[in-house]
Design a protein around this nucleic acid. Structure first.
Length: 420
RNA sequence: GUGAGUGUAGCUCAGUUGGCAGAGCACCAGACUGUGGCUCUGGCUGUCGCGGGUUCAACCCCCGUCACUCACCCCA
């Protein structure tokens, strides 16, 4: 192979590209029902945006970003996630200012320099949504219900929704301190990785799959016991609203998210038994992010992102075969190719999916191609018929071929139901 | 970043103790006249990932390298 895609990047070919398009169309439709409108932000942002939003000490920022210095000496980064850009754009433009909550969704590629494996690419794609301007628990529930409805509608089965609250700056420090203390006392029982991350990110220890860590942290303090009054009320209200929205969920007080900006509600849709990449979609509330990025006032917000590759992987193959042609034109001699070409152009212009062979192959070969194209009708342009101003009109399903005036055939074909 | 596995025709893959690179599918052409599917006959296609080494001889053994896949880490 002389040239290939860059590592971790993939071409998306038909018919797979058609499955992508169908999924995106479905997402747009669901989003529209909930009042979310599309936003398209640049793939490139100042490095500082992601460093501040995602968190300086996260793996994403520390070692996974595609960062480079452009010709003017500025450090730019190809986006590793969507929320930071959307928040930045929201603060820049204030769409819908003064009109209540703002709902935005996006679809597009993200880039992280990781080792590729199943369900994880360097260029991967997310469909996400962000709801700005309210910290009402109903906003959390609505956002999650939207996501749930979309996933179920897409045909995903066996998903489970896990939710948690990470508290806020009022109550999280106390829990953090308590957990750190708890883990310090059990240092010897933890795996090597966890001993390392105990100091830096103690929450992550709770998420460790190593058996010894699961055992060691079995009775670890739960964040939910440390929530302050407002956070506790919020979480309870979210649970209530989810229940009334008919969205099943379970609490997972050990759930950890990979980005620093989350607070209060976090959630994940997971598929049991999918291995390490079992999270299909995830999100949470990020009430402090706008201010962290320099916004003047507090903008409460909640959002999620769906991993498109993972979702498609879970949905499996099938569906979306390439659409068959409506009609295939054949000629008995290459002298008739100009006539056939003219008619094909005329049919396509009229919205008919018409195809033909340009290579002057044998009639038999043209029919073989017609058959493979899936065409329902073959139009035979023959010398004999031509002398009578007629064409052969063959129904490929039953093999019945009749000779009819050329214009009559064209009229019939134009009557074929159009797409869209 | 760490570890393991795999790279052979357009695709899926065989290839024995080292001895002239194969199959199926696909594709092309035929099987009395100008007609598809089924069947039959014939035909085309290779940098055996790349670079070294061992050998009379390497797809096969050795070293290196790249790519892909899977797992770890982390994440959607």
């Amino acid at each position: 192979m002389t040239l290939a895609t860059v590592r971790g990047m993939k071409d998306i070919l038909p018919p797979e590209s058609e499955r992508w398009a169908a999924l995106e169309a479905s997402f747009r439709s669901h989003a529209g029902r909930y009042g979310f409108r599309e936003i398209r932000t640049p793939l490139l942002e100042r490095t500082e945006l992601f460093a501040r939003a995602v968190g300086e000490t996260t793996d994403i920022v520390e070692k996974e970003m595609y960062t480079f210095t452009d010709r003017s000496g500025e450090s730019l980064t190809v986006r590793p996630e969507g929320t930071a850009s959307v928040v930045r754009a929201f603060l820049d433009h204030r769409p819908g200012a003064g009109e209540g909550p703002v709902r935005l969704f996006y679809i597009g590629p993200m880039f992280r320099h990781e080792r590729p494996q199943k369900g994880r690419m360097r260029q991967f794609h997310q469909m996400g949504a962000e709801l700005f301007g309210t910290d009402a628990p109903y906003a959390d529930a609505e956002t999650i219900a939207f996501l749930h409805g979309f996933l179920v509608g897409a045909g995903l089965r066996g998903i489970s929704l896990e939710i948690n609250s990470l508290g806020d700056p009022e109550c999280r420090p106390a829990y953090h301190a308590r957990l750190t203390e708890y883990l310090a006392a059990r240092d010897a029982e933890l795996c090597d990785d966890c001993r390392r991350r105990r100091e830096r990110n103690p929450l992550r220890v709770l998420d460790c799959k190593a058996e010894r860590c699961v055992r060691a942290t079995a009775d670890a303090p739960s964040i939910l016991d440390f929530l302050c009054g407002p956070c506790r009320d919020h979480f309870a209200a979210v649970e209530g609203a989810l229940a009334s929205a008919g969205v099943p969920f379970s609490r997972n007080p050990r759930m950890v998210r990979g980005l620093d900006y989350y607070r209060r509600t976090t959630f994940e849709f997971v598929i049991p038994g999918m291995g390490a990449q079992n999270t299909v979609a995830a999100g949470g509330r990020y009430d402090g992010l706008a201010q962290l990025l320099g916004g003047k006032e507090r903008v409460p917000a909640i959002g999620f992102a769906i991993g498109v590759e993972r979702l498609l992987m879970l949905l499996g193959e099938g569906g979306a075969a390439s659409p068959p042609a409506d009609v295939f034109l054949v000629t008995t001699s290459s002298a008739l190719l100009p006539d056939a070409f003219r008619r094909k152009m005329e049919l396509v212009a009229a919205g008919v999916r018409a195809d033909m062979d340009y290579e002057g192959r044998s009639l038999k070969s043209q029919f073989r191609r017609a058959d493979r194209s899936g065409a329902k009708v073959v139009l035979v342009l023959g010398e004999e018929e031509g002398r009578r101003g007629a064409v052969g009109y063959r129904d490929m399903a039953n093999g019945i071929q009749e000779e009819i005036p050329a214009e009559e055939a064209m009229r019939r074909l134009r009557g074929v139901p159009k797409e869209g």
